[in-house]
Nucleic acid binder design. Sequence first.
DNA 1: GGAGCAAATGAAAGCGCTGTCAATTGGCAA
DNA 2: TTGCCAATTGACAGCGCTTTCATTTGCTCC
Lengths: 338, 338
Amino acid sequence: MAKLAGVSAVTVSRALRQPGMVSAALRDRVDAAVSELAYVPDVAASRLASARTHSIGVIVSSLTNGVFADYLRALHDTLLPAGFQVVVFSSRYSSTEEEKAIATLIGQHPEAIIIAGIDQTPHARRLLERSGVPVIQTFELTDDPIDINVGLSQRQAGYSATRFLIDQGHRKIGYIAARLDARAHARMAGYNRAMEEAHLDVGGLVATTPRPSSVSVGGELLGDILDRRADLEALFCCDDNLALGALFECQRRNIPVPGQISIIGFNDLEFAACAHPPISSVATPRYEMGRLASEIVMRIIESGERPANRRIDVGFAIRERGSTLRRDRPQPLRALSE
Amino acid sequence: MAKLAGVSAVTVSRALRQPGMVSAALRDRVDAAVSELAYVPDVAASRLASARTHSIGVIVSSLTNGVFADYLRALHDTLLPAGFQVVVFSSRYSSTEEEKAIATLIGQHPEAIIIAGIDQTPHARRLLERSGVPVIQTFELTDDPIDINVGLSQRQAGYSATRFLIDQGHRKIGYIAARLDARAHARMAGYNRAMEEAHLDVGGLVATTPRPSSVSVGGELLGDILDRRADLEALFCCDDNLALGALFECQRRNIPVPGQISIIGFNDLEFAACAHPPISSVATPRYEMGRLASEIVMRIIESGERPANRRIDVGFAIRERGSTLRRDRPQPLRALSE
DNA sequence: GGAGCAAATGAAAGCGCTGTCAATTGGCAA
DNA sequence: TTGCCAATTGACAGCGCTTTCATTTGCTCC
């Protein structure tokens, strides 16, 4: 390459990275040789020599779950223009794969790591701590972040969704969840807390499966509950796919939604608002969370400046739509105010 | 690291890569030091020294479009167990980003590249050709592959879906598409061909948008057509998200599906089969396609053995479901057999 | 008991770049 | 014309590994 352009390797490197520092003539010669050979510099060599990778490691639970779509988009939108490469790994909801992904990632020496979730294994945690780069944990909130934490309380969100249904006048409120990752558990804990607080029985009202979440699973899980509790009044679904499946299942069984069963989903994916009826959901600011995480990371890399707070709560919001309906009750719920 | 274990760097390298070649005692010392330091070898140095990256580059149009989910899963399922790392880039449906992704990827020296689509820019093509590694183009079929091509004829699939509706007795058949990438265009070409062949007019029956596909866009596009053609009888949707949106829009407008309008989608995503009514769709073997591509790649890397055919058609299949209905016509369609 | 060999380990070189610093060139002031 | 400085370019070393080859160790076998 350098030979073809008739210059030294150093000049090629400079012409490509800081064109302003070489004369126009040489720059042209280099450019010509580059395009002649379809030359692409070896990042491995570059990384080794410069100790910079210009890459940010990102680990998500799934590449294909709609939940990570906006989040990943935000990361790309923010980091690419700043000259960073975004290296995405999926743990596929497996701790083992997550550990592997973290190790692989660290071997690539990203300049920061943004990882979804807070439930890393002790080994994974150690790897991250020892990596020496900023680590942002996202999606959930923890009191004990590895480094920095940008997320929301999944438990609180689950509580709020359930409480929302209770406040609407529902009593026989079901909960369905698939995959059962840490976030699903946290939401369920919130559901249980809200039900317990309202002195409502959850017997037969919960259906879960370790299978991945999907629309069809949502229908099946609702079916499981209905087999036991035909008197179901409302359903909190751990995610919007399940909610959509539950909605279809109701339509299939001629159960009016929200007339007989109210349905609320989670994450407020795009389709929720335009379903028929539109599905109520808990909106989580995933794009915002990704943007925030990227900006924190870039600030640390560029100026070493760390956020004042290691723990940033991005919150959530209940989106009330047509799939949930206020139900008038003759007698008030006892002791809900405790 | 080597110092802590009291051995040479070479031994560390060997203990980690070929444990069988070092004595148990040293192996234990190395392992201890590794976990003590949370040591992870530097892939850049490794790659530079060994000229092997054990990575396969993958470029898709979108990380978050459900279409790539099964495909990526297949790639991971097949390549990870074989010891390859899967490096995924998204072109985000942009030629510019695709070029950048290809360049970045080649700088990382993957051992093969699997890229979705056949419509790379000339520059991108050159980069791929010059990279010196096997390149598999997927999802579509071309007569002029860069190297190897595993896909299906999107045009043919679009033709078949339309023809399916025609054969069901429909005449006023609409087409909606979003994003308008190469595959959407190919499907539309198939639609146009089928309509033309059947001497059916497409006036006012087509609605497209450059916006990304989504469920809500599906409803809007159907609305656009209905504004012009209230007599619409059937709708071919460029993807299942649009189809779902169209279905919801019909429900919202109290238009019976399939009673008044038949709907067929494309790709047969998971939710199509469990919608209400279940949505007919064109199933594309995406998992199979990914598996095939991986296996070809691994065979080439391991033994240099290339497939007999550079162009492999994985086909497609119409899944007939409740959203499409045979419509009886008094008079037969003229000249359909031409 | 010593030659011969296999197994285990280490020393040295080098992968393709970039950081550092030295060398060269040209322009301009004195 | 001479000397000095800035701009431009190149030489060299080294990033952290792995490959190759040499060395050492511990056997086996005659």
